[in-house]
Amino acid sequence: MPRPSNTEERRQQIVDGLLKVMAERGYERASVGEIAKAAGLSPGLVHYHFSDKQEILLVLVEQLASRARIRVTMRLARVKGDDARAKVDAFIDAFLATGGDAAPSAVASWVTISAEAIRQPEVRAAYDRVVKADLEQLELLVAAVVGKRRARTIAAGLFAAVQGYFVLSASAPDLVPPGSAAGTVKRMAAGLLDTVEAREDA
């Protein structure tokens, strides 16, 4: 595999610098100088590689989405056979489970990105694409358990719970018992899926 170019390495350092600063201070207080400092570069190099702070943020949105997709793919690959319920749990685990692949700074940054999506149309468009793709994947997994008719409503509720845990863990971490998020949302999923299956069987 070829070695990344110096330009790619510098751009990645800058994106990682924004991630670090944003997780600690939010987007508004992530000045180019602070991003450069966190990246170990000069502000001039940040300006050389990116036209503005928003461009860095949009790259970060895509990278965080890509990392989340990789986690989902890896968790789904661990499910044996065609256990549809286990696949729903694996999806939830990919977003909320603690462990070696957990990324608290990414979660904190994602919460900030969701706030910026309200304020900035370009960020909203990128955010919408990511959330839509994630929600569609969860809907397909849920549909394999309960069928298409109720899958969207259940998937939206579960995904809202995931996003809610993101906000709580980033803004009020003391309110979330450590390691509780994935288990709680999986129990919610089981309750919703059981209810629908029971109605279908009645």
Rank of each mutant, 00 (worst) to 15 (best):
A108Y: 06
G26Q: 02
K148A: 15
A181C: 02
R71D: 05
A90T: 07
A103K: 02
Y48W: 15
Y48F: 14
I14F: 09
A108L: 08
T7S: 14
Y48C: 03
I154V: 15
A77N: 08
I56G: 03
S5Q: 11
P178D: 07
V196C: 08
R29Q: 10
A144V: 06
V88A: 04
E197Q: 15
R85K: 08
P173R: 08
R67P: 11
R25P: 02
L18G: 01
Q163A: 12
K87A: 04
V162S: 01
V196D: 08
V145R: 05
M22C: 09
A133G: 07
A126C: 12
V72F: 01
E8Q: 15
G100F: 07
S31L: 13
L41I: 13
I92M: 00
V130C: 08
V145D: 06
G157Y: 03
L19Q: 04
V88Q: 02
S5I: 10
R11E: 14
R71Y: 06
G26H: 01
S105I: 12
T195S: 14
K132A: 12
D101L: 05
A97D: 01
A126I: 07
V72E: 02
T195I: 12
G191D: 10
S31A: 06
R149N: 07
K20F: 11
R25L: 05
G33S: 09
G157Q: 04
I70G: 07
H47T: 13
T73H: 11
A94F: 04
E139S: 15
R199I: 09
G17A: 06
A172G: 02
R187G: 03
S169I: 01
A30W: 03
A189R: 00
E116T: 05
V107F: 00
G26L: 01
S171I: 09
G17K: 05
V32P: 10
G147I: 12
R129N: 13
E8R: 08
